[in-house]
């Protein structure tokens, strides 16, 4: 037998390879169809653009507090705020002199009594002050 002749796969192997290839191509088709789905989340809009005015009013570095909505989307909102305001550390706590309020869906009727509103930047973005944390810092 001439060894240069390529080995012919058995019918079973050949069929298996062809089925395998066909399944791969079906998955590729799914990939193409799914690629046309538009993005559901606009990160830039929810972070950099949303917090641009607030960022200009905050110190460049340091730690600020944060209050926001609860639940799963509330956690995402917090990280989008942190992402926009880095290298400032945004701690999810009101125990800082400056506290960011982030309420994308509905602004609460009132805030905890120890927090004073400094600026309302609109769109649910607020800057608050915590005088008690101020005193503690002093």
């Amino acid at each position: 037998m001439n060894e240069k002749t390529p080995l012919c796969p058995s019918k079973r192997t050949a069929s298996a390879i062809l089925i395998f290839v066909l399944c791969c191509l079906l998955s590729s088709a799914k990939l193409v169809l799914n690629a046309t789905t538009p993005a559901t989340d606009n990160v830039a809009q929810r972070s950099d653009q949303r917090f641009a005015a607030l960022k200009a009013a905050l110190p460049a570095r340091g730690i600020v507090g944060y209050i926001g909505e609860s639940g799963n989307t509330g956690t995402a909102d917090y990280y989008l705020a942190q992402y926009a305001l880095a290298p400032l550390i945004v701690e999810h706590s009101p125990d800082h002199t400056l506290v960011i309020g982030n309420f994308p869906t509905a602004r609460p009727a009132s805030f905890p009594s120890h927090l004073q509103l400094v600026t309302d930047f609109g769109n649910g973005v607020l800057l608050l002050r915590n005088p008690s944390a101020d005193k503690e810092a002093k």
């Binding site: 058995s10 079973r12 192997t13 069929s15 298996a16 399944c23």
Partner: peptide, 12 residues
């Protein structure tokens, strides 16, 4: 698919 291919091609 990989498991199936392995099984079918084991003849080789």
């Amino acid at each position: 698919l990989l498991v199936g291919l392995c099984f079918a091609a084991s003849a080789n």
